[in-house]
Simulated scan of single mutants.
Amino acid sequence: MRKGNAMSCPQRRVLPGLDREVSAIGAGCWTLGGPARNNGVSIGWDDVDPEAAYAALVHAHELGITLFDTADVYGLGHSERLLGRLLRQVDRNHLVISSKVGYFAGTGPHPYHPRQVTHQLATTLDNLGTDHLDIYFLHSDDFGENDHYLPEVLELFARWRVQGVIRAVGMRAPHFFAEQWAVGDDDRARQARRFLRLFHAFRPEVLTVRYNLLSPLYGPDETDIFTFARQHGAGVLIKQVLGQGLLIRELGTERPQTFSVDDHRCGDPRFSQQALRRLAERLAPLRARYGTSTAALARVALRYALQHAPDAVVLVGFRDPEQIHTTLTCLGVPLTDDEIAEIRAIPHPHPHPHSLEGDQ
């Protein structure tokens, strides 16, 4: 297998929390899992060919990707098994592999029942063909009624850390967060307090957060998740920087796209025709300045995130070699300060948990 070309993948970064050098762009493997449902909820992606998905993983590695992020629930294990196929062909020690637990309950009473969590970790390691995870993410903050399962999960994660089965703990950050919001009685305050409580309980080394060029802007007196992570020495993985493809979609077709019941987009209001029209209006200034090609728009979106958080890793999703190739070869030169200012001048939504037009 060919080694990565440094010119194809952006610079490497030392990810805080792990203190390891990784590629500034990582592979987000949710899309590779294909169509799936979990407990009656659509969680997958249509139109995924397993061989094309595996070829895309191979190409990502060839282009210099060293961080791969998956989860037990992505394709109900299919994404992990595809990644495990890659790990059998490359040097595992040169890669950072993360997976997640907390959504799939199987036949058990709850995803975080200790027996279920233990089973899921064993299955994940078997799917990947590895004896450890570099990062193991808590995929949900629902630990049952009155956090019934929280103490035992804390104990399990602490034990696995000591054993070296997991090298670092990861947590999801709220889509909207500033530390100062924790004071109050509204939903935003409760969500902030919930995150802070779990953060200080688990002491995660890595956080994952949704962020892109349409994400809400925060004031200078607000400690957003990036600043919060730096203050606590935690690394950040940025997800949905391309808005699940919405920020780079080609225009010109009015025919609505339809999704199967196993595709999460079938019920997502952001994929409705009305929402797509509103999004196109918001993106019109960017398309006028940078062009309408997928590569041109992807460059702007990726550069915006990479420059906003120079110590974070940006995760990108893909389903075939062409998609990952376009993403990793489109970066070009960094955005100027004036260009970033113009992007920030685009109307951004208020950072409130119930804003449907929040970050795509």
Rank of each mutant, 00 (worst) to 15 (best):
Q273S: 15
A275K: 00
L237V: 01
V261T: 14
D263G: 10
T208H: 10
R230Y: 06
L213F: 09
I225Y: 08
V236C: 05
P216D: 13
Q231P: 01
Q240L: 09
T258N: 04
R203Q: 14
K239N: 12
R270M: 12
L279T: 14
L283D: 06
A275V: 00
G252I: 12
V209F: 08
Q257G: 01
E205V: 03
R278C: 08
L242R: 02
G219N: 03
G219A: 11
T208A: 07
F259M: 01
H232K: 11
I238R: 03
F259G: 01
E281G: 05
E254L: 07
Q257C: 08
D268Q: 03
P216I: 12
I225R: 02
Y218E: 10
R230K: 13
R230T: 11
E281K: 10
A284K: 12
K239I: 15
G245E: 11
L276C: 01
Q274H: 07
D262W: 06
V261W: 04
L247K: 00
Y211D: 04
R203M: 10
Q244K: 11
R255H: 15
H200W: 05
G233T: 02
L214P: 07
Q257K: 13
L213E: 04
G233N: 07
G233C: 03
H232I: 08
L247N: 02
R249L: 08
L237E: 02
Y211Q: 12
D221M: 11
Y218Q: 11
T253C: 12
D268G: 03
H264E: 09
V261D: 15
Q231D: 14
E281V: 08
H232F: 09
V241Y: 04
R203C: 06
P220G: 01
L217T: 13
F202H: 04
E250L: 15
P269G: 07
T223D: 11
V236R: 00
I238M: 12
A229P: 10
L213Q: 02
Q244M: 13
Y211W: 15
Y218G: 06
P269N: 05
S272Y: 01
F202C: 04
L207R: 00
T208F: 02
F259Q: 02
R255F: 10
R249V: 04
V236P: 00
D224P: 09
E254A: 09
A201H: 11
Q244N: 13
L214N: 06
Q240E: 15
H200G: 02
S272R: 02
E250F: 10
Y218P: 08
F226C: 12
P269V: 07
C266M: 09
Q231A: 14
T208Y: 06
A234K: 06
L283P: 05
G233H: 02
T227S: 13
